[in-house]
């Protein structure tokens, strides 16, 4: 990670989230890396594509008594702003084939179509895929 130590060089980082939450650990791992990485003052974006859109669906209920007994980390996406991670993008096609709209999501996001998403990825220095 020598590149990250170059003083004053701000790079464009994109975290690409493509997995549903809870079934695998990818979604939570990605979120934790984002929060840790936030200390490095880079230009960070998050993209939610494919099943990754499900990560930010509202109304998760994972309680021990009535549910699966795992941590509901969907609530944590709401602190990203406090960590100065403010650029969240959702691919329109992924959202639509799941019957979801912007109103179903727990945080404000910018909706991009497939071409815009591809363009966003093309302009990154680093894409971290989860």
């Amino acid at each position: 990670m020598d590149d990250m130590e170059g003083e004053g060089t701000i790079k464009k980082f994109l975290y690409l989230n493509r997995k549903a939450p809870y079934g695998t650990v990818y979604a939570l791992e990605s979120l934790e890396v984002v929060l840790i990485g936030a200390a490095f003052d880079q230009d960070v974006s998050l993209a939610f594509v494919d099943d990754g859109v499900y990560q930010i669906r509202k109304n998760h209920n994972t309680k021990v008594d009535s549910g699966i007994g795992m941590k509901d980390f969907s609530k944590t996406y709401r602190v990203l702003e406090d960590y100065d991670v403010e650029k969240l993008y959702v691919e329109k096609e992924s959202m639509e084939e799941r019957g979801l709209t912007k109103d179903d999501l727990i945080v404000p996001v910018e909706i991009m179509d497939r071409a815009q998403m591809a363009a966003l990825m093309a302009e990154q220095d680093v894409v971290l895929s989860f």
Partner: peptide, 15 residues
């Protein structure tokens, strides 16, 4: 309870 996370120092300070 609200965010399911213990905040980093700078975030805690701000909050």
């Amino acid at each position: 309870d609200e965010y399911q996370i213990a905040p980093a120092v700078r975030v805690l300070t701000k909050a």
